[in-house]
Design a binder for these strands. Structure first.
Lengths: 123, 123
DNA sequence: TCGAACCATCACATAGATGTGAAGGTCAAG
DNA sequence: CTTGACCTTCACATCTATGTGATGGTTCGA
């Protein structure tokens, strides 16, 4: 598919799709006329990327995480240097802390909303 | 305490503490000489703010969430407009989605690491 | 009293994710 | 053959969170 369709299906501007490609987060083939040509899995990939960006990860880190997400699992073991593995572990832990922070605060919001509703059931 | 101590205890630059105050995320008294004077709870507050910023929330939203986090619970019911409650609900749901995204991807990283380690137990 | 170590405000710079628009190529349908 | 809707690259603008440095006031200990 061309960039317009991918943009529409992922709710992402064309500008950003090109940016993600520039950052190495997605790839595209080129049609004979120079247009970008995306395979079907690009849709999920872009959605993944957007979710991670929205959760505060920079493209630099997302790029390192992406190989972990490819199913069918295609692990290029030789590429997995010890530093790389260390980075992944650190990021994984950081993601856990982030998620905990989000859930903790989310629960506080829920509590707050419940309290307000108990006070004024009309809302 | 003055800004230097708060900075040290929260691992945050003085510059950022002043910025958070400007954004309405923290408050401070002033000493007779004009220096900022922070109460003890500011430490936790700053840590909260940093966690939420790191999880991708903009200061604008964090500011709206903060009143939910004050314990002992001090809910200013008259301030709770219906729009405000709607915003809170929406943000709460967004936080849930963010956390899910983080945990999902974190699990994928863990799987990946396990697979690599199964291949080469040395790492 | 002087210097070091705080503090203040203010302005300018940077980096990352994004928007916008210019200038121009491709293609299909009227 | 022209028009409109795509696409390309490139450059510049914007917003937010941050760094950095200038300029100057306060306080405290040698």
């Amino acid at each position: 598919m061309r960039i317009g369709e991918l943009a529409e299906r992922t709710g992402t501007s064309r500008r950003l799709l090109r940016y993600y490609e520039e950052q190495g987060l997605i790839v595209s083939e080129r049609l004979p006329n120079g247009y970008r040509d995306y395979a079907e899995p690009s849709v999920d990939r872009v959605i993944q990327v957007r979710g991670l960006l929205d959760a505060g990860l920079p493209t630099r880190i997302i790029k390192q995480i992406l190989p972990c997400l490819d199913k069918p699992r295609q692990i290029y073991f030789p590429d997995a240097t010890p530093e790389m593995l260390g980075t992944l572990e650190a990021e994984r832990d950081r993601m856990t802390r982030r998620a905990e922070c989000l859930l903790r605060n989310r629960d506080a919001i829920t509590e707050y909303l419940d309290a307000v509703r108990a006070y004024d059931p009309a809302s």
